[in-house]
Amino acid sequence: MGASREKILETIQQYVDLVATGTSAEVVALYADGATVEDPVGSEVRTTAASIAEFYGALDGLEQTAKLLHVRIAGNEAAFAFELVTTAGDATYTLAPIDVMTFDDDARITSMRAFWSGEDLIAGP
């Protein structure tokens, strides 16, 4: 039957919030066993819990804010855009990727592919 639209939307909002202000362990807890992460698309696909945790570990301790911009859900899949702003000293770095995810019946993430490239990162004062 699949997860409800509401549960998937809740997972997406948690994901966006936790990427900005949570710990890598909290983000990884949103993933199902056997999940995959390809961020950005074209990079090596991470296929183990340890490699996914290592990937999100790079976010630990950063000063960030995030907001969900757009979401489209169809069945057990979703595409969404969000904006992530990282502050480092007096500089800010803004990235607005489009993520495509699939979900299991409990609305846990089974795959994530992030569409962005270096040209999409905006540095500001």
Score class of each variant (00 low, 15 high):
L30C: 00
I12T: 03
V27Y: 03
T36D: 12
T23G: 12
A29Y: 05
G34W: 14
I12F: 07
T11K: 05
G22E: 06
D17A: 15
Y31V: 11
V16W: 06
T21F: 05
D33S: 13
I8R: 01
I8G: 02
D17R: 14
G34Q: 14
A29S: 06
V16D: 08
Y15E: 08
A35S: 15
A25G: 08
E10L: 05
E10R: 14
A25E: 14
D33A: 13
T36C: 01
V19N: 04
L30H: 04
D33C: 00
E10S: 14
Q14Y: 10
E26R: 11
E38W: 00
A32G: 07
E10W: 11
Q13N: 10
Q13L: 10
Y15F: 14
S24K: 08
E38S: 09
V27S: 00
V19I: 10
D33Y: 10
T11F: 00
Y31R: 06
V19A: 03
D33L: 06
A25C: 00
Y31H: 13
E26T: 11
E26L: 03
A32P: 06
E38I: 00
V27I: 14
Y15D: 05
S24C: 03
A35E: 13
Y31N: 02
I12C: 05
I12V: 07
I8Y: 07
Y15K: 04
T21E: 15
A32N: 08
T23E: 07
A20T: 02
V16Y: 02
L18M: 12
D17H: 15
I12R: 02
L18C: 05
L18S: 08
V16K: 07
L18F: 14
D17E: 14
I12L: 07
A35D: 12
L9P: 06
V28M: 03
T36E: 12
E38Y: 03
T23P: 08
I8W: 01
L18Q: 13
L30K: 04
Q13F: 09
Y31E: 02
E26A: 11
T11H: 00
V16R: 11
I8L: 03
T11G: 06
L18N: 12
V27C: 00
G34A: 11
T11D: 05
Y31C: 01
A32R: 10
A32H: 11
A20D: 09
A35V: 04
E38P: 13
V28N: 02
V27F: 01
G22C: 01
E26D: 11
L18R: 12
L9V: 08
E38R: 08
V19H: 00
L18K: 15
L30A: 00
E26V: 03
T23I: 02
A32C: 07
Q14M: 12
G34D: 12
T23F: 03
Q13E: 14
Q14S: 15
G22Y: 07
V37I: 11
K7L: 12
V28D: 06
A29G: 00
T36I: 09
L18A: 04
G34T: 14
T36S: 11
A35C: 10
V37L: 15
E10H: 13
Q14K: 15
E26P: 09
E10V: 05
D17V: 06
V27A: 02
D17L: 10
V19G: 00
E38M: 13
Q14E: 15
G22W: 11
V37D: 05
